[in-house]
């Protein structure tokens, strides 16, 4: 989507600028996205509108094209880096804004034995973009970490991620533990990761399976009743 001519972002009207930021995010142009967001803020756009209608929307398209095999992991990571830059500008504004309230709390973490967090981080970013307060437990989490985080943060949803076939069964173990403690009936558990599928999620009694980052964020909103 790159044009040969340099585009002066400040010369664009709002609609064209929004389209250009989306194109730039798709192309993974971090500095350009940063500048575009800065201009929208100067034009008194609300931070949450920039987040949802520009950055998240652009990342949603990235997610679709990744699913369809048009974009590959390195390109998606470039896009994510560009989105992160834009979100970095918005986060303090959103945090300081009285009007901005989280739609829900989402605790997320990669399971024990697994150090892979690229997918989890993408999901976390999309969840944040969808209005969730995200508590990220990082990688290699034993069941105790999930239990402690549930106790401390009282999340609306728990998310678990795994990249390895050898570590994905651990999700089932965490879910069993939640069930034993009567937490599961109150707390929806979403699972995701490259080797997973719906069949596996059903087999371990997970509430939902997040196939990709954008879809996970959509599902999370549906679970808490924000997508009706």
């Amino acid at each position: 989507m790159s044009d040969e001519e340099d585009i002066i972002l400040r010369d664009l009207n709002d609609n064209d600028l929004v389209d250009q930021i989306k194109d730039d995010l798709y192309d993974g142009l971090k500095d350009e996205v940063f500048e575009g967001v800065e201009i929208l803020l100067e034009r008194k756009w609300e931070a949450n509108l920039i987040l949802s209608d520009v950055l998240v929307e652009a990342m949603r398209i990235v997610g679709i094209d990744f699913r369809d095999g048009i974009l590959f992991v390195p390109e998606v990571l470039q896009c994510a880096g560009a989105m992160k830059g834009g979100m970095g500008q918005l986060r303090p504004i959103l945090a300081a804004s009285d009007a901005q309230t989280s739609v829900g709390k989402f605790v997320i973490g990669t399971v024990k034995g697994d150090i892979h967090d690229i997918g989890k981080n993408l999901v976390g970013m999309m969840l944040e973009g969808a209005g969730f307060e995200v508590i990220d437990l990082g990688i290699n989490n034993p069941v105790e970490n999930y239990l402690a985080a549930i106790d401390e943060h009282k999340p609306d949803i728990l998310g678990m991620s795994a990249l390895l076939t050898t570590t994905m069964p651990y999700m089932g173990l965490v879910i069993e533990e939640l069930d034993k403690r009567n937490i599961l009936k109150e707390l929806p558990v979403m699972v995701g990761g490259a080797p997973l599928n719906q069949e596996f999620a059903d087999a371990i009694n997970a509430h939902s399976y997040g196939r990709d980052a954008a879809m996970s964020a959509e599902m999370a909103r549906t679970i808490i009743g924000k997508n009706s």
């Binding site: 390195p74 470039q78 880096g81």
Partner: peptide
């Protein structure tokens, strides 16, 4: 992994 095109992704992939 696309590191020839995006060497800056090295830390993203191998951070852990």
């Amino acid at each position: 992994l696309g590191l020839d095109r995006y060497p800056e992704l090295t830390s993203v992939y191998f951070n852990n």
